[in-house]
Design a protein around this nucleic acid. Structure first.
Lengths: 184, 184
DNA sequence: TGGAAAAATAGACTGAGTCTAAAAATACAG
DNA sequence: CTGTATTTTTAGACTCAGTCTATTTTTCCA
């Protein structure tokens, strides 16, 4: 793409790889941006050329999926089509890093809030097809649940898109027990 | 409660009031913790005796509602009861501050992520009554939508609990159009 | 009057994130 | 081969959030 100028000395992938190692070794909180840059053989300032925040290097796979999803939606794809397109690009190799920082999510609001912020972003993408906000969250929740179940399930579980479809199907037939005591 | 020892020189309410003024004057991002402490007539260190993070002073009303909700749930209240109890304690005076920082939410991920984190916390409370994760998000979304609609509606709109109930009722009767193209 | 308890405070420290200016590395034109 | 435009890297200074420790202040009470 960029044929002119100084060539890049790093990339999101390289930095993510370096960060992953450190997160697995020391955990997210104990790893500084200096550590990551040093491991990647690049200066601290360069890190910020590739990620605006520290937490973004942890969620890069989530963000990429959301980018792809938003792009598909903007190009006029239907929801089902867009979901299928995006899930096809998600690989299991992204999972261990996120799972390894599950402790951190409980201990630091920074990570759990950032992850929740991605849910919010998902609802905002869904808003382009689903007018009602309540249903935006409902469907975002179903997508998240499907993804989590798929991640936890390991290789033997069914495919990601199937898990999401199953979670979505649940919304179609509300269980009366779920509403017990909520509505008059 | 604390009859012994040095009396408190401030409170969450005093700090929130001071912070509110500054947020309205300069905006959230341009206001430092030093500013808030100074306006409240207290040292910077004291701020952290009352709030663990800067963003928490902005969301104190949300957190109080969630605290009350979680407490009601832990005491065995039904979901409908708990919602009614909490919404009774929410006043319109908390709204303007949050609304005034709507710009900030778009400009800084810190605030929007923190708000999304509160949605996550709501789903975790709901988990004690609602087993399925998808429905946790769906109902959290309905509560959020009801609250937002109530906040936007101004004084002439119906009560908060009624708005939430209406949003919840929507979930009971899925609109086929919402699922168009999602499910096979 | 002299603790004991609780809170406020000073101040140093780490690290995230911003910003500016300069240096380094490349392609290319002449 | 040399100079120039372009892009990226980098150094370094800076602000501010958040943590931590030790000290001081204020009150109650024996």
């Amino acid at each position: 793409m960029a044929k002119v100028g100084r060539p890049r000395a790093s990339s999101q992938d390289v930095l993510e790889e370096a960060a992953s190692e450190l997160f697995l070794e020391k955990g997210y909180l104990a790893t500084s941006i200096d550590d990551i840059a040093q491991r990647a053989g690049v200066s601290r300032a360069t890190f910020f050329n590739y990620f605006p925040q520290k937490v973004d290097v942890l969620l890069v796979s989530v963000d990429r999926a959301l980018d792809a999803f938003g792009q598909a939606i903007d190009q006029g794809e239907g929801l089902g089509q867009a979901i299928e397109m995006v899930t096809r690009g998600v690989t299991r190799s992204d999972i261990p890093l996120l799972v390894s920082q599950a402790d951190t999510m409980g201990a630091s609001s920074e990570v759990s809030d950032a992850l929740a912020g991605r849910m919010l972003r998902l609802t905002q993408i869904l808003a382009k097809r689903i007018p009602n906000q309540t249903w935006q969250w409902a469907i975002a929740g179903a997508i998240a649940e499907g993804a989590i179940r798929w991640a936890r399930g390991g290789a033997e579980s069914s495919s990601l898109v199937v898990e999401i479809r199953e979670a979505l199907a649940l919304l179609r037939h509300p269980n009366e027990a779920d509403f017990q005591g909520i509505l008059p």
